[in-house]
């Protein structure tokens, strides 16, 4: 096994190796994080005081910069006092992996500090609901508009210049406006996700639809398709799987707008939880919550990709080569006398 087997340009890797690399892509950052957290001489810019010794302003459990600790320790020794004791730690905003891992479970079990605050699962549910409605409303308008723009020059010229302009207006800038119009609860948050997603969606889907192979349209025309049926029976099915992929990417963007949207009006959802935990300096919970967004986003995307295989069976290419090589070219049957037509 030479290194070329691993690093061949555009060279397919065996499935086992691919899987190994996928696992590794997650393990490498985790290993780096673990190293910084668990190897005492890596970074660890602070010392946590376990015994103040002769230093009068040291308190047990306080974090002091290493240099300060060393200076005070030397001073105490020189003065004949008891040396302070401590161990190196990282700043409080970088918790160790095991703490974050534990927070994944404890965060769900910890009741909120105030009785009217939501539990973590409620916050998450709230976020997912917001993003779902934002994305659905955006898609209801964005997909048909995109298809129209991609199919007809008329709509492309009528819509896209304005959409292109509007796309540059940052969605969060509409926050105050949305609150003024829609109140302080969920509607303005959904509106911001719609504003952030819709205009990109029209342009991206318009572009995808424009890329449909013109030869397919010509073939359909010579088979008698025209007008709206050409759009419905050829352009849409020809691009639907690419539109689906576009939507998967756009859903990722929608999560970005979610975080902005959730601080508009009354803070809510996962952002509320994150901000609240950061205020209490529970950074392990903060990391856990951020990681949860990643996990939800990533697993949604995986699920959609998996679903796509079933929605668009013609995109599954794996069977192709096997069939082609195993079946000899059959010949037209000369026995059947032609009775068609």
């Amino acid at each position: 096994m030479s290194s070329r087997d691993w690093l061949g340009l555009k060279h397919e890797l065996p499935r086992r190796r691919q899987f190994m690399l996928v696992v590794l892509s997650f393990l490498l950052p985790l290993a780096l994080w673990s190293a910084v957290s668990y190897v005492p001489w890596l970074w660890h810019p602070f010392v946590r005081v376990t015994a103040p010794g002769g230093v009068d302003y040291f308190i047990e459990g306080m974090d002091v910069p290493r240099a300060v600790f060393a200076k005070e320790k030397a001073a105490a020794l020189q003065a004949g006092l008891v040396a302070p004791a401590g161990y190196p730690v990282n700043p409080v905003y970088l918790p160790a992996p095991h703490k974050v891992a534990r927070a994944f479970f404890t965060a769900f079990k910890t009741p909120p500090r105030l009785p009217n605050e939501p539990w973590l699962h409620e916050s998450l549910g709230h976020s997912i609901r917001t993003i779902f409605w934002g994305f659905v409303i955006s898609s209801v308008f964005g997909i048909p508009l995109g298809i129209l723009c991609g199919s007809y020059r008329f709509f492309s010229k009528l819509q896209e210049p304005f959409v292109e302009f509007f796309r540059y207006l940052p969605a969060p800038a509409f926050g105050a406006l949305c609150v003024a119009i829609l109140g302080i609860d969920d509607p303005p948050k959904i509106a911001i996700i719609v504003i952030g997603t819709l205009f990109q969606q029209v342009l991206v889907i318009g572009n995808t639809v424009r890329k449909v192979d013109p030869a397919l349209i010509e073939a359909a025309q010579t088979l008698g398709a025209r007008g709206w049926r050409l759009v419905r029976r050829v352009i849409i099915p020809a691009t639907i799987s690419d539109i689906y992929t576009d939507l998967r990417i756009l859903l990722g963007w929608a999560w970005t707008y979610l975080i902005v949207a959730e601080v508009v009006g009354t803070s809510s959802g996962i952002t509320f939880f994150i901000n609240q935990q950061a205020r209490y300096r529970n950074f392990d919970n903060v990391y856990a919550a951020i990681a949860m967004i990643g996990i939800i986003g990533f697993s949604t995307d995986m699920a959609l990709a998996w679903l796509g295989q079933y929605l668009f069976p013609w995109k599954r290419r794996r069977r192709a080569s096997a069939l082609k090589s195993s079946v000899a070219e059959p010949s037209p049957s000369s026995a059947i006398p032609m009775s068609i037509g």
């Binding site: 030869a215 397919l216 073939a219 099915p237 639907i240 668009f312 013609w314």
Partner: peptide, 13 residues
């Protein structure tokens, strides 16, 4: 009817 050089079959059908 027309038959093109690039097959132009509808891949989704």
């Amino acid at each position: 009817g027309m038959v093109f050089q690039g097959y132009t079959l509808f891949p989704w059908r």
